[in-house]
Structures are given as C-alpha cells and as structure tokens.
Design a protein around this nucleic acid. Structure first.
Length: 98
DNA sequence: GTCGTGACTAGCC
DNA sequence: CGGCTAGCCACGA
C-alpha cells in the first residue's frame, strides 16, 4: 500500500483534481511527495497510459501557461475550456488553481 | 552504478 | 515583455 512509487502517487493526485479546476506541476509534485520534482511529474504525465483515468490536462505550469500535452497543447486548452476553465492568451486564470 | 531524457521552475539580462 | 541559463527530480536503458 505504501510501496507506491512517485509515478503512482502522481496519478492519484492528478485523478483527485476536481473538474473545472487545475493545479501546477509543482503542486502535483508537492502532493506526490517531492516538491522539487515538477519535471519528474511532467515525465509521468507524458508516459500517462490512461488519459481518461488521469486528467493530465488539468495540470499546468506554475506561471499559468498551459504547459504541454501528449495529444497537443491545443487539445489541452480545448479540454480545459470545456470543463469551465477560462484561458486567455494561452494562460489559465490563477483562481482556477485548486 | 552511470547516463540521458523531459508536459518544470526561478532567476537573470 | 521576451528569451536564455542553470538547477532540480524520477524513470528507463
């Protein structure tokens, strides 16, 4: 149970993000147990095999930019907007952060 | 055990 | 405001 790796932990954290909200890679990394592993989180998301189970599109950069997406940043933005997240100039409003 | 990789972050010019 | 550098972490080969 507690043998979960950082990767497994990230999936759980991202999956716990409420719809219509987003968090930064640093925040996800912090919840995963490594506040400095924002980059590692990105790696996990990129390898994320279950995008439907893990809404990796709800993870954005700390500066508000959408960041990247395995299916294309454009797709990520479209999904966020559908969830109710307002994005301007490619940047998500900080109030949407959980 | 070592190296390379990447959807990051913060600081500096 | 915009671009670049250096530092950071976890995973696979």
């Amino acid at each position: 149970m507690s043998e979960e790796t950082f990767t497994q932990r990230v999936y759980d954290v991202v999956a716990s993000i409420p719809r219509g909200k987003v968090i930064t890679y640093g925040e996800a990394a912090c919840r995963a147990g490594s506040p400095r592993a924002a980059r590692a989180v990105g790696n996990v998301m990129n390898k994320n095999p279950d995008t439907e189970r893990v809404p990796c599109h709800r993870v954005i950069c700390s500066d508000g930019s959408v960041g990247g997406y395995a299916f294309g940043t454009s797709k990520k933005v479209a999904l966020l907007r559908k969830e109710g997240v307002e994005i301007i100039d490619g940047k998500v409003h900080p109030e949407y952060l959980v």
